[in-house]
Nucleic acid binder design. Structure first.
Length: 152
DNA sequence: GCCAACGTTGGC
DNA sequence: GCCAACGTTGGC
């Protein structure tokens, strides 16, 4: 089993939004970065655990846990000219962009803030806290996953 | 709102 | 293939 962290702006889609979706699951559309796409397309498997991270907000940090429930398939929002994430280069017969479905598992008892994660020497090589990192999806080692949960 | 740190685009 | 210009991300 693999572990991941996925960023979302809570104004656009929050952990509470996921919790309130029918079946508490949602497709993770809109990823338009090749590195992130490759991880979704090639490496994210059913049952993988995901830290749900709120970015671009008052207190950026990890707020909950989700789980992969459907492996990669074409991101159909790329085909829709009216969609914010429309990409004319991605065609249904040859899609550029992919997504997975995730399901709500639980909220953390409290937000584990980015500031707090940065202060932990054990997490110094966690991709999230590395300088200049902007990846919206990144792998988390089991050791880091377990360590982060002890902070809860 | 600012701006650093990227990634992408396109002229050459 | 290089690289300047531009757009985006996301913390602060």
């Amino acid at each position: 089993m693999n572990y991941w962290l996925m960023k979302s702006e809570p104004d656009a889609f929050s952990i509470t939004d996921l919790e309130q979706r029918p079946g508490q699951s949602e497709h993770w559309d809109g990823v338009r970065n090749y590195q992130a796409r490759n991880m979704m397309r090639d490496d994210m498997k059913i049952g993988d655990q995901v830290f749900f991270y709120h970015s671009n907000c008052d207190v950026p940090g990890i707020v909950g846990i989700a789980e992969v429930v459907k492996e990669s398939y074409p991101d159909f929002t790329a085909f829709d000219p009216d969609d914010k994430h429309f990409d004319p280069k991605s065609r249904p017969d040859k899609p550029t962009w992919f997504m997975v479905d995730v399901r709500f598992v639980r909220k953390l008892e409290r937000t584990i803030s980015l500031q707090e994660l940065k202060q932990r020497p054990e997490l110094a090589d966690l991709a999230l806290v590395r300088r200049g990192n902007r990846l919206s999806i990144m792998p988390v080692s089991k050791a880091h996953w377990d360590m982060i949960l002890t902070l809860e």
